[in-house]
């Protein structure tokens, strides 16, 4: 769809044209779902988050500035909707005693795994380990990771999209990736 057609569609959406709403959502719902899935960390959450985000897209279209690219606005609305939903939940902050997976405890992983790392590598490849580890991160850390590595945003852009201070963005990115790096170390047997 060219930009003009898209802007026209958005104008029709603002007028409350339901056919236009349907077209707009059909065009972008997969992108929104993927983002929600990645930020939420589970497919169960993603369905609720997506619905919330899509409602906010439709009801918030008046705040979109015509003539601007639509995707960054869409991303921001989706991120805000996710953050609102996730914030409302009981905090799932991760403690060192909380089991990370089956019988592995995070404390062990940090302190240098007691089990044989080569053994772990045999039954789980790096991708799975990382995905699992990402789903256990605090949602704010997962959010900045997705913004950086999947959406390709700069630190400043992440701060703008997530409404987090720039310093916090850097800190979350650093912590999240250190944690994931430790997981990779377990898989590859790095010292």
């Amino acid at each position: 769809m060219n930009t003009d057609a898209e802007q026209n569609l958005i104008i029709r959406c603002r007028e409350g044209d339901e056919g236009a709403w349907r077209l707009l959502l059909a065009r972008y719902e997969i992108y929104v779902y993927r983002l929600c899935r990645q930020i939420g960390g589970s497919s169960e959450d993603a369905v609720d988050l997506t619905q919330e985000a899509l409602v906010k897209v439709l009801t918030g279209l008046d705040s979109f500035q015509l003539g601007r690219p639509f995707k960054p606005w869409l991303r921001q609305v989706t991120v805000n909707a996710c953050l609102n939903c996730l914030r409302r939940r009981a905090p799932e902050t991760i403690s060192l005693e909380q089991p990370v997976a089956e019988d592995i405890v995070l404390g062990d992983t940090i302190a240098g795994n007691t089990g044989d790392p080569a053994h772990a590598a045999e039954w789980r490849d790096a991708r799975d380990v990382l995905r699992q580890a990402m789903s256990k991160l605090p949602y704010q850390q997962r959010l900045v990771l997705v913004m950086r590595h999947q959406e390709g945003l700069s630190y400043e852009e992440i701060a703008a999209a997530t409404d987090l201070p720039l310093g916090t963005v850097k800190t979350y990115l650093y912590r999240a990736r250190q944690q994931l790096r430790r997981k990779l170390a377990g898989v590859y047997g790095w010292e």
């Binding site: 339901e18 709403w21 349907r22 959502l25 059909a26 719902e29 997969i30 779902y33 993927r34 899935r37 990645q38 497919s43 993603a46 369905v47 997506t50 619905q51 899509l54 409602v55 897209v57 439709l58």
Partner: peptide
């Protein structure tokens, strides 16, 4: 990411 078949429903609900 596996896209759920329910996505059109989610769209409809959102509308």
């Amino acid at each position: 990411v596996e896209i759920p078949a329910a996505l059109p429903f989610i769209r409809q609900q959102a509308i």
